[in-house]
Computed example of a mutant assay.
Amino acid sequence: MSTAASLDRRARRRRQTIDEILDAALRLMEAEGVAALSLSAVAREVGMQPPSLYQYFASKMAIYDALFRRGAEQVLAVRREAARTADTDDLLELDLICLTAVSRWAMANPVYSQLLFWRTVPGFEPTPEAFAPALEVMQELRDHLRATVDAGLLHPDAATEDGVALYTSITAGVLSQQLANEPEATFEQGRYTRLLPVVLEMFHQRYAPPRG
């Protein structure tokens, strides 16, 4: 029991240190730019020598990878919570609720957004493990579009790969414009984010169900 408890405490301390390193990296990326991350700067931020940092992350890309996974897990959790707590049975309305929740998260977390949605770090490619939650997000979007088609609310083409590509292109485009032009605005105040319901309605109209 004593050995097991000791190992458990050691694991908790390691997890805590890893979280502190990731939080420090996030702060530095916010201040200096996502692609400007430096391992030595991260080490200074958490009060350790650079060689000690390698006990937790083998490279700068490993830090990016861990942050990508953390961000993708947050997006997945936000989308699921929005769907779980939505007070509607209307699948089109639910679409806007989930999209709004994820968009709010993206605006509140611009560093994660750059890492997840735009290729701001040359040479970075998330590992399959880090990318897995992002794939879950996309699968849940596909499942939702398919359910909306099955309910007769959208044309079957909305649930195709082209439909999903159009959906993500126009919605991500709104966020990209907002973060590029008015990064300090709130979701409600944003010149572009205010258009999100309009953009989504355009998608729904593009894939209106067949008449009859």
Rank of each mutant, 00 (worst) to 15 (best):
G163I: 02
N181I: 13
E184L: 12
A41G: 14
E201N: 10
T17N: 07
E182A: 08
V137C: 06
N181M: 13
L153Y: 02
A66M: 05
A134N: 10
E184G: 15
R142A: 06
L53P: 01
V111W: 02
D8I: 11
P156V: 07
G212T: 05
S6K: 15
P133A: 08
M138P: 02
A83Y: 11
L37C: 05
G190D: 01
D90R: 12
A130I: 04
A82C: 03
L22V: 08
P133T: 06
D65G: 03
A58W: 09
Y192A: 06
T100L: 04
P210K: 07
T17S: 06
V121H: 00
E188T: 13
E201M: 07
K60T: 08
P197Y: 08
L99D: 00
G33Y: 15
F131C: 07
L96R: 15
E30G: 14
R27A: 11
Y112D: 06
I170R: 00
Y56Q: 03
A108D: 15
S6C: 14
Q55D: 12
D89W: 12
L179I: 09
R119L: 13
I97A: 06
E32K: 14
D19W: 06
R84L: 11
A72L: 08
E140G: 07
D150Q: 05
A82N: 01
L195I: 07
T160V: 04
P122K: 03
L7S: 14
M61W: 10
I63Y: 00
T148H: 01
L91H: 08
E136F: 07
L195K: 11
S38F: 04
I63A: 00
R79I: 11
V174M: 02
A25Q: 02
D90T: 15
F117Y: 13
L94I: 09
P183F: 09
D19H: 11
T3M: 15
L28S: 03
L94Y: 03
G163A: 02
R104H: 08
A62L: 07
E201K: 11
V42E: 00
E81I: 12
Q16Y: 09
R79K: 13
V174G: 00
L28N: 01
L96H: 12
A72T: 02
T168E: 05
A101W: 02
A172K: 11
H144A: 05
S52G: 12
T17D: 07
T148I: 06
D87F: 09
L145G: 00
Q16G: 10
G33H: 14
E73V: 08
V198E: 11
L141Y: 04
D95C: 10
R80Y: 10
P122W: 01
L94R: 03
A31K: 07
R104K: 11
S59R: 09
F203E: 00
L145T: 05
P209V: 01
A35C: 10
A180H: 08
L39Q: 08
A82K: 00
I97Y: 01
L37K: 01
Y207G: 02
S38G: 12
P51L: 11
A31M: 08
L26F: 06
L7V: 14
A36V: 08
H155Y: 10
P156K: 06
V111E: 03
L135E: 15
L96C: 13
T171K: 10
L28W: 04
A185D: 15
P110E: 04
L7A: 13
A180W: 13
E30A: 13
Q139T: 12
F187V: 15
G71I: 01
E93T: 11
D87W: 10
C98P: 00
E73K: 09
R211L: 11
